[in-house]
Design a binder for these strands. Structure first.
Lengths: 134, 134
DNA sequence: ATGGACCTTCCAGCGCTGGGAAGGTCAAGG
DNA sequence: CCTTGACCTTCCCAGCGCTGGAAGGTCCAT
């Protein structure tokens, strides 16, 4: 099938599929007219990529996971290692965001949000953030 | 002072400071020899930017916040609106990451992580993710 | 005069698309 | 047979927010 149908069936934009081919994640055949030609195997790989990307795996993680997916002799430990690495990166991001959220919401709550110029948010951004007042 | 000292005192890399000038967030003077020359006001703005960026504000948010910071007649409501917008983006990101984390950790926990090829993580990525089995 | 630390500009790249131009190909309809 | 329009192709530019490197100018100490 052509790229349009592959896009429709995997939910990935055609642009993204071309990009995945460019970076050698997939290697669809070419028809005589030069069009990419996708088989069921390609579709599976694309769907796999779509799900892995939706879980936030980097492209390089995806490349590794796809290789393991295709390797019948893999050890599940190898897969698990990749996933655990990603999990800890997610945890780190969540922690960072929560910390930002904490600071920011304190500032927002302290701000009257009216017509006056006095603003704790700007004060907080212009001064070294004071530590817990206690 | 030169860019090196400005970098040391704000904690921002010199490259980043040059970039901020390029996108017109700051406009340091130039000395006769062509070197950028930073005054205290520039330093304050750079520190402000460093803190705003550390809280995850986008460059465009920073541009807006900096303009409000410099405008003595601002309304704190305008600042608050920017901050609240950012706060809700943070909340959305946290929610997304938590959702990823949830799915991923279920898969990781189900994986034996041994020498055998059987792997629930790969299975989960290759099949339509099953909804709660209940 | 020389060395090295500093400064300058410009160019390219990261991951991951998205947008759009310019052009080839195909199937259907007049 | 020719046109229309949907599809496909490649290529290049843009964006985020820097970051790296190359090539070269400036300054200061020795």
């Amino acid at each position: 099938m052509n790229i349009g149908e592959a896009a429709a069936r995997t939910g990935l934009p055609a642009k993204t599929i071309r990009y995945y081919e460019e970076i050698r994640l997939i290697r669809p055949h070419r028809a005589a007219n030069g069009y990419r030609s996708f088989n069921e195997r390609d579709l599976h790989k694309l769907s796999f990529l779509a799900r892995a990307r939706a879980l936030g795996f980097s492209i390089e993680d995806c490349r590794m996971l796809l290789a393991l997916y295709e390797d019948e002799t893999r050890a599940s430990a190898d897969v698990k290692r990749v996933a655990e690495g990603h999990l800890s990166r997610i945890d780190q991001k969540i922690a960072d965001l929560k910390s930002m959220r904490e600071t920011l919401s304190e500032l927002v709550e302290a701000c009257a949000g009216d017509h006056r110029p006095d603003c704790p948010i700007l004060k907080g951004l212009s001064a070294e953030p004071a530590r817990m007042p206690g």
